[in-house]
Amino acid sequence: MFLIECPWCGERAETEFSYGGEGGITRPAEPDKLSDAEWANYLFMRTNPRGAHQELWNHAQGCRRWFGVERDTVTYHISRSYVLGDGVKD
Protein backbone atom coordinates (compact mmCIF):
# COMPACT_ATOMS: atom_id res chain seq x y z
CA MET A 1 0.00 0.00 0.00
CA PHE A 2 1.57 3.22 -1.16
CA LEU A 3 1.69 6.49 0.64
CA ILE A 4 0.71 9.46 -1.45
CA GLU A 5 1.33 12.99 -0.32
CA CYS A 6 -1.74 15.17 -0.59
CA PRO A 7 -0.44 18.74 -0.92
CA TRP A 8 -2.97 19.75 1.76
CA CYS A 9 -3.45 16.80 4.11
CA GLY A 10 0.04 15.30 3.96
CA GLU A 11 0.98 11.65 3.48
CA ARG A 12 -1.97 9.32 3.42
CA ALA A 13 -2.59 5.72 2.41
CA GLU A 14 -3.20 5.05 -1.25
CA THR A 15 -6.70 3.78 -0.47
CA GLU A 16 -7.82 7.34 0.28
CA PHE A 17 -7.10 8.46 -3.27
CA SER A 18 -8.50 7.92 -6.71
CA TYR A 19 -6.54 8.14 -9.92
CA GLY A 20 -7.47 10.63 -12.63
CA GLY A 21 -5.23 9.65 -15.50
CA GLU A 22 -2.50 11.61 -17.18
CA GLY A 23 -2.15 15.26 -16.25
CA GLY A 24 -1.29 18.15 -18.51
CA ILE A 25 -3.99 17.45 -21.07
CA THR A 26 -5.85 20.68 -21.70
CA ARG A 27 -9.32 20.58 -23.13
CA PRO A 28 -9.37 22.35 -26.50
CA ALA A 29 -10.98 25.77 -26.27
CA GLU A 30 -13.10 25.31 -29.36
CA PRO A 31 -13.72 21.63 -29.98
CA ASP A 32 -15.96 22.23 -32.96
CA LYS A 33 -13.05 23.80 -34.83
CA LEU A 34 -10.98 20.62 -34.53
CA SER A 35 -10.72 17.95 -37.17
CA ASP A 36 -11.83 14.46 -36.21
CA ALA A 37 -8.18 13.45 -35.97
CA GLU A 38 -7.30 16.37 -33.71
CA TRP A 39 -10.25 15.65 -31.44
CA ALA A 40 -9.40 11.96 -31.33
CA ASN A 41 -5.86 12.88 -30.39
CA TYR A 42 -7.13 14.87 -27.41
CA LEU A 43 -9.64 12.20 -26.50
CA PHE A 44 -7.65 9.02 -26.80
CA MET A 45 -3.91 9.58 -27.09
CA ARG A 46 -1.78 9.45 -23.93
CA THR A 47 2.01 9.54 -23.59
CA ASN A 48 2.27 6.30 -21.59
CA PRO A 49 5.93 6.92 -20.75
CA ARG A 50 8.42 4.52 -19.27
CA GLY A 51 9.66 6.61 -16.38
CA ALA A 52 8.43 9.93 -15.04
CA HIS A 53 4.68 10.34 -15.53
CA GLN A 54 2.60 13.40 -14.68
CA GLU A 55 -0.65 12.24 -13.16
CA LEU A 56 -3.80 13.59 -11.62
CA TRP A 57 -4.92 12.23 -8.28
CA ASN A 58 -7.91 13.06 -6.15
CA HIS A 59 -7.86 12.87 -2.36
CA ALA A 60 -11.30 11.29 -2.57
CA GLN A 61 -11.63 10.14 1.02
CA GLY A 62 -10.01 13.28 2.37
CA CYS A 63 -10.14 16.90 1.26
CA ARG A 64 -11.57 16.03 -2.19
CA ARG A 65 -8.88 18.14 -3.89
CA TRP A 66 -7.39 17.17 -7.23
CA PHE A 67 -3.63 17.56 -7.44
CA GLY A 68 -0.64 16.62 -9.55
CA VAL A 69 1.72 13.75 -8.93
CA GLU A 70 4.95 12.86 -10.69
CA ARG A 71 5.33 9.10 -10.53
CA ASP A 72 7.86 6.77 -12.12
CA THR A 73 5.98 4.09 -14.01
CA VAL A 74 8.85 1.63 -13.61
CA THR A 75 9.72 2.00 -9.94
CA TYR A 76 6.40 3.52 -8.80
CA HIS A 77 8.47 6.10 -6.98
CA ILE A 78 6.57 9.33 -6.45
CA SER A 79 9.02 12.18 -6.76
CA ARG A 80 6.61 15.03 -6.01
CA SER A 81 3.01 15.98 -5.61
CA TYR A 82 1.81 19.52 -6.16
CA VAL A 83 -1.09 21.92 -6.23
CA LEU A 84 -2.35 22.41 -9.75
CA GLY A 85 -1.64 25.79 -11.24
CA ASP A 86 -4.37 28.14 -12.35
CA GLY A 87 -6.14 26.65 -15.29
CA VAL A 88 -3.20 24.42 -16.14
CA LYS A 89 -2.92 20.71 -15.61
CA ASP A 90 0.85 20.76 -15.31
Binding site: T26, N58, G87
Partner: peptide
Protein backbone atom coordinates in the same frame (compact mmCIF):
# COMPACT_ATOMS: atom_id res chain seq x y z
CA UNK B 1 -14.99 18.39 -9.13
CA UNK B 2 -12.28 17.25 -11.51
CA UNK B 3 -13.48 19.67 -14.21
CA UNK B 4 -13.98 22.45 -11.72
CA UNK B 5 -10.60 22.04 -10.07
CA UNK B 6 -8.33 21.04 -12.91
CA UNK B 7 -9.80 22.59 -16.06
CA UNK B 8 -11.92 25.53 -14.97
Amino acid sequence: ESWLQTEW
